[in-house]
């Protein structure tokens, strides 16, 4: 194809972009070198390359603080994230399907109802939510976290799904209907598989928010042993912690899974992330 031919100009462009990418990565460079620095060097020579590379920092960070190891916290984070994302995919796609396929005014109203839900400041809702979830026994365990995040992130999931479904052609559904398929079958067998790109979008956006959230998990886990990664990690960044090497090692551990997931599935990820636009 004409537009994709590699010409000398493209080589120049390639070099320029690689240089820009290197500049972009400077923060990652510091993240990496500080994470492997010996204790003293962090403040005697903060920006130089470490004199010796101390991989033991990762081991120490992994053991964690306050009796909570990062390994255990990682598992809890995985449970909460996977649980929330699964529920959001199920409820979000179903709700958005109704909105997208509704011809009456109510469809448009419901859409606005969910979009405003994204903008409302959930911070103001924390105390009422905390007390009601507590009376249901949903504070201090993973199930409660999953319910909470699902409720809070549902509007975003519905928004992304609905936008995508609007652009989804109806042909397949109509064909299936002609074939006599039931409503449930049409949705789960025909429509849902077509939603794969936006399902990836929803999974990545909401999964990232849940994985990185610190405060809600701190409050709603309420000191129980079900601590998640950001909560456990904060043990290193308390008031009297200036052990940047430990902090950065913990940061590396916390971003490693999500970055690895991202790097692995890059193509799918990138397409999935914006699956809402692309159809």
């Amino acid at each position: 194809m004409e537009s994709t031919r590699y010409r000398p100009l493209a080589a120049v462009r390639e070099v320029l972009f690689i240089l820009l990418a290197l500049v972009w990565c400077i923060p990652f460079y510091y993240l990496a070198i500080v994470a492997v620095k010996p204790d003293m060097e962090v403040f005697t020579a903060p920006m130089s390359f470490p004199s010796t590379i101390v991989l033991g920092n990762f081991a120490e960070a992994w053991r964690g603080t306050g009796g909570v190891g990062l390994g255990e916290a990682l598992l809890n984070s995985v449970i909460v994230t996977v649980g929330t994302v699964s529920l959001l995919i199920f409820l979000g796609s179903l709700t958005a399907y109704v909105i997208a396929r509704n011809t009456q005014r109510i469809g448009g109203l419901l859409y606005v109802f969910f979009v405003v839900g994204i903008i409302l400041p959930y911070q103001m809702a924390i105390v009422p939510l905390f007390s009601s979830l507590r009376s249901l026994g949903l504070v201090g365990n993973q199930i409660g976290m999953i319910v909470l995040f699902t409720g809070l992130l549902l509007p975003m999931a519905v928004f992304l799904y609905a936008g995508f479904m609007r652009a989804l052609p109806h042909d397949y559904e109509e064909a299936a209907q002609v074939d006599g398929a039931g409503r449930g079958k049409i949705f789960f067998r025909i429509v849902f598989p077509l939603l794969r790109p936006v399902t990836a979008t929803v999974a990545i956006m909401t999964g990232m928010i849940v994985w990185n959230d610190f405060f809600l998990q701190l409050i709603f886990l309420n000191g129980s042993s079900a601590q998640t990664l950001p909560v456990a990690m904060y043990g290193f960044v308390g008031e009297f912690t200036a052990r940047w090497n430990m902090v950065f090692a913990a940061v590396c551990i916390s971003i490693a899974p999500i970055l690895a997931f991202y790097l692995f599935a890059q193509r799918r990820f990138m397409q999935g992330f914006t699956g809402g636009i692309k159809s």
Binding site: L94, G117, L120, G151, L154, P155, V158
Partner: peptide, 14 residues
Amino acid sequence: PGIVLCLLFHYVAV
């Protein structure tokens, strides 16, 4: 289910 969840977690609580 979605409407109820959004109503409770966002509108009522806020």
